[in-house]
Design a protein around this nucleic acid. Structure first.
Lengths: 230, 230
DNA sequence: CTCAAGCGAGAGCACTGCTCTCCCAAGCAG
DNA sequence: CTGCTTGGGAGAGCAGTGCTCTCGCTTGAG
């Protein structure tokens, strides 16, 4: 991230990324369960104990991969969104959803790492939160723009949820109405439900034309969040 | 399942369920990653190799636990539905969704086992399909009843999805309109997206009043699938 | 130019899944 | 009721894992 000061620091960074690259290769090939520190070290021509100079434990390596995966997915969503810059908000929403799905299909094991069951002893370090938010930020940006163009319908929220809705709006989407915050978060979770079910085989024997199905479901999600198709 | 013929067969069943019970205990305590055949055997006072007389591999044990988990979750959904027998379909839909969430919160590791990332080398044996369908069947039952009472709205499906929608309806919900099949499957996946996000910590710092939030989201799901609140 | 810091190598510990062989007791057929 | 077969437990062992510790060598920073 920062400029490497000395040669020593640069070498350290290089080895660190080499380890991560090889680990990512093994992750993509076999899945997180089969990712072995010793195998990574072996492939890099070093001995396993040397690897502990760079990552204090296997879980820390996994955490680094998790952050990278979040960033990769976030970037995929952002570039897809940028490429659809001219389209209407509702259409861009669908495009971003499809980008998420596409990334998941090309990086199944990395997707499983970040949106599947938490692998280590249930520890999601706070370092993962900012990169994890990138997809959500793209979606929020679409909503904000639609709102400013007065192109956002609202579904009312029951009274028992009103205070929480206000709090969510303040913290997540300041300036947007509370109903939008609630709908947004729900759609966000539901999007990953759709992607996860397809990826983890739950649609086997149920949905065949998955791309068309997903496009429609994403459009319905857009509808649910208040976006209107022109 | 079948009546144990001889004493030998009965003993085998007893040991088998003892193994599963102990394995489930460890699963609930530590998660699937830490489930160890040797630890199970140790706790049962036998040696690890003896366990292979009952389960040919660790993955087979996990598969057995997966099936049990699906059944447990399905049963939770069914009893919740039965307990709400008098209510309107839309309300029963919400009740069943809440039962799924409740089961997930009380059995997090078992939930992760069945709806998290597939643990073994990506093998979901077909034996898991029928128990996995139980929750969906409950939801379908609600829809069917609502449909017969003419209490089911339909959201049109785009032309490109129409053939697939027909196929899905024929295979999943024969007698119900294709639009319902599509909406049902989407809602089904989205339900588990909501539950999974809450369970796996994605709502940390985002949603605080999770029960209220979920109830509202489930109601919106019911709305999306065509159920109307009286 | 020196010398500590950083890093790799190696051995080793405790653990895992899984296999194979041995051997005994219990259940079944006669 | 007896004999035999077979199911299943015990133990050793293999290959692999994560992780620790100690020992030196290099090399870059002061």
């Amino acid at each position: 991230m920062t400029t490497p000061q000395g040669a020593r620091a640069r070498a350290r960074m290089e080895v660190t990324t080499a380890i991560k690259d090889e680990a990512r290769r093994q992750l993509a090939a076999e899945g997180a369960a089969k990712l072995s520190l010793r195998a990574v070290a072996r492939e890099l021509g070093m001995v396993s104990s040397a690897l502990y100079r760079y990552f204090p434990s296997r879980d820390d390596l996994l955490t680094a991969l998790i952050i990278d995966a979040y960033d990769s997915l976030g970037e995929a969503a952002e570039t897809a969104h940028a490429a659809a810059a001219g389209a209407a908000p509702a259409q861009r929403w669908v495009v971003v959803c499809e980008a998420v799905r596409g990334w998941a299909l090309t990086h199944p094991h990395e997707y499983a790492l970040i949106y599947g069951s938490p692998v280590p002893g249930y520890s999601a370090p706070d370092t993962t939160i900012p990169p994890a938010a990138r997809v959500a930020l793209v979606l929020i940006g679409i909503l904000r723009e639609a709102f400013e163009r007065r192109g956002l319908a609202r579904t009312p929220v029951p009274a028992e949820l009103a205070p929480e809705a206000r709090r969510m709006a303040d913290e997540l989407v300041p300036g947007l109405p509370p109903e939008v915050a609630v709908a947004m978060v729900a759609a966000w979770a539901q999007l990953f439900g759709l992607v996860g079910f397809e990826l983890f085989g739950q649609f086997k024997g149920v949905v065949e034309e998955r791309e068309r199905f997903f496009r429609h479901a994403a459009a319905q999600l857009a509808h649910g969040v208040g976006l209107v198709f022109p």
